[in-house]
Design a protein around this nucleic acid. Structure first.
Lengths: 246, 246
DNA sequence: CAGTGGTCTAGACCACACC
DNA sequence: GTGTGGTCTAGACCACTGA
């Protein structure tokens, strides 16, 4: 390396990533722990920051999993999480794998208030739900429901926590189904979502926004946050293939 | 702020991001150019690397747009790109906004070969398509089609480039529709996709994998790459709401 | 406790866009 | 050219995990 002669348009971290990626394919198996960052950097003759740039990308692609105080391991293939608009049902009906853990009355983010067509400072029912797969928290969701749209029902007035969440969802389910639409985009985990998903704040997440309608007008909005490193969101048309591409 | 007394478990870049985010909301408008990184870092009293960590996250969230040699600007809201399994049609039929630019015969990635049920070293028709919105390249796709599944058709034998792509898609469209399924995940742009999307290699992208079936077996696989910074993928159930949450 | 990944610094040079 | 963001270095210290 005493020859910094010809310029390479290829950044070091990019080359590193390629080399590491091949090594992961051939010399490591799922769950195995890599050498620590200082040793890897030394082995490749780069600064730790440069090595970390390569690891960052591999983590983004779901090939690695890093945990502070523990180490870097080879990640298993991503979970497929079904988010298809398949069954036309309200959240919380039988078979819904999400677990509602809490419900409060709070002012939603402005974008949600706009989508619901309510004033920006209007408190709404806010149900928090979490999705577990293989024992791991995979996604967390806030469901926002203006009290005004809910038909009468029992158990909401004094209930707290999971009980209130169940009661609110039960009342929501009394409404006639009016369709929903969804959007997926990239985001970064807020402090609360990061804690629930066992990630650091700022970790990349997939944000799925769902709008529910009834009688032609919006009645609920869900904002779900999935770990982008471990999740693949699937939405089948019917069920033609079992696609397991990476 | 002259009181740096109590320790904050909150990283500097996280706090910076919050401050910048608020500033973007209140003091800047879409398209406006921010001060350069060195000046921002000096203004906030942090190293440039730290400032960049905050900017990285804001860019990930689609709030900023950075271009080497130019500067950092406030990003417009993300485009909504429809990827719903709505119309049951083959790629390339009338009304399909994708532009097919090239077609070669090449060995696909192993995951694609597996999904198609062909040998890992088997060359397949590989159509490259690009999606433009507002004059900007938003996504790029590789469609993989084993020649064996295609019914007879004209114009494929000697055609090259866009002509061959058109001919291959025309033959594909002769097959009876058998459904499709899709998956979305996070990835990083390869060198080729990065060039087409006017991004740097390694930029975060949303990867949409589509499997097409006919007669109960897989006949084509599409791997589409969308700019994660500027795109929001939408898949409506019907068309109930116009959701514009961020 | 020792070992890990996460944060931060203060520089340097490079690749690129624009004039 | 000048000015921008992108890459890279060689350190330092912090926060966390687990023995």
């Amino acid at each position: 390396m005493s020859r910094p002669d010809q310029q390479q348009p290829e950044p070091k971290y990019w080359h590193l990533k390629t080399v590491l990626s091949q090594a992961l394919d051939t010399e490591f198996s799922v769950g195995q722990t890599l050498p620590n960052e200082r040793e890897l950097a030394a082995r490749f003759g780069v600064a730790r920051a440069t090595l970390r740039q390569a690891l960052d990308q591999l983590e983004l692609e779901g090939r690695l999993q890093r945990r502070r105080g523990v180490g870097t391991t080879v990640a298993p293939p991503r979970f497929g999480v079904d988010v298809s608009p398949g069954q036309h049902t309200w959240p919380g009906t039988a078979g819904d794998p999400w677990v509602a853990t809490d419900c409060t009355v709070a002012v939603p983010p402005r974008a949600v208030a706009d989508a619901l067509g309510v004033a920006a400072d209007r408190p709404v029912e806010t149900v928090r739900r979490t999705l577990f797969t293989h024992g791991q928290p995979i996604g967390t969701e806030h469901l926002f429901i203006p009290p005004g749209v809910l038909p009468a029902g029992e158990g909401t007035d004094n209930a707290r926590g999971a009980d209130r969440a169940g009661a609110v969802l039960a009342r929501l389910q009394l409404l006639p189904w009016g369709g929903r639409d969804r959007a997926v985009e990239l985001g970064s985990a807020g402090a609360d979502a990061a804690r629930l998903l066992d990630r650091l704040p700022g970790s990349p997440v997939l944000i799925v926004t769902t709008g529910y309608a009834s009688g032609g007008s919006p009645v609920a909005v869900g904002v779900a946050t999935y770990r982008a490193d471990t999740c693949r969101l699937t939405f089948g048309d019917q069920e033609p293939l079992s696609l397991t591409a990476s």
